[in-house]
């Protein structure tokens, strides 16, 4: 009886200390490739072309008690673009598109995060791509979190957003159906102890 009261009291103390259990830094698991940055863009308006960036890294901070204070930063190696076609990738890296020699990195730095009740959230941030920095909004789904089988703790989100290529000074004419590219993001973070 006494032990149980003590435990309850201790537990209450721990839980009442704000952020002790909740606020945590996560490293996005690019090493184990549990994170993806995919893009898709219509081809002539007849089909979707899919590709991805193979190399990036990032971190995020998430506090269950104060999710609004979460933040995320991701740096993408633009030369790692991969659309499963060597000549197209070469073209995409060149001066018509990403100019990866001049702009080897793209960067996303969050500026705000607001959660809804249904597990979705809106992530605001600044995206620097092709030398242009602009605010973008990413629709986020908080997919899950918990211990992994190897002694760690993981938390994952998916996100989608749409970019106008012209907003980032990419004005190569791919046709009227192909002026916007959709991004699909899937990130899993490993909590840093």
């Amino acid at each position: 009886m006494k032990t149980r009261t003590l435990t309850a009291a201790l537990l209450a103390t721990v839980l009442s200390v704000p952020g002790l259990a909740a606020a945590a830094d996560y490293v996005i698991d690019t090493k184990g490739s549990h994170a993806f940055i995919q893009f898709r863009i219509p081809h002539l308006g007849y089909s979707m072309l899919l590709g991805r960036f193979n190399e990036f890294e990032g971190t995020f901070n998430y506090d269950e008690d104060r999710p609004g204070e979460s933040s995320v930063e991701v740096v993408i190696q633009t030369a790692s673009i991969d659309s499963n076609h060597a000549e197209r990738d070469k073209h995409l890296r060149g001066e018509d598109f990403l100019e990866v020699d001049k702009y080897p990195e793209a960067r996303f730095v969050s500026t705000g995060f607001s959660e809804n009740d249904d597990g979705t959230a809106t992530l605001e941030g600044e995206l620097t791509l092709h030398g242009v920095t602009r605010p973008i909004t990413i629709e986020v789904e908080h997919m899950g979190h918990g211990p992994d089988p190897w002694g760690g703790y993981r938390r994952g989100f998916t996100g989608t957003t749409t970019l106008k290529l012209a907003d980032f000074n990419i004005d190569y004419d791919l046709g009227p159906a192909s002026r916007e590219v959709e991004l699909f993001l899937s990130v899993e973070g490993i909590r840093q102890e």
């Binding site: 499963n84 076609h85 060597a86 000549e87 990738d89 070469k90």
Partner: peptide, 8 residues
């Protein structure tokens, strides 16, 4: 080697 870089 350009054209075959991705195995095509």
């Amino acid at each position: 080697l350009i054209s075959t870089a991705e195995g095509r």
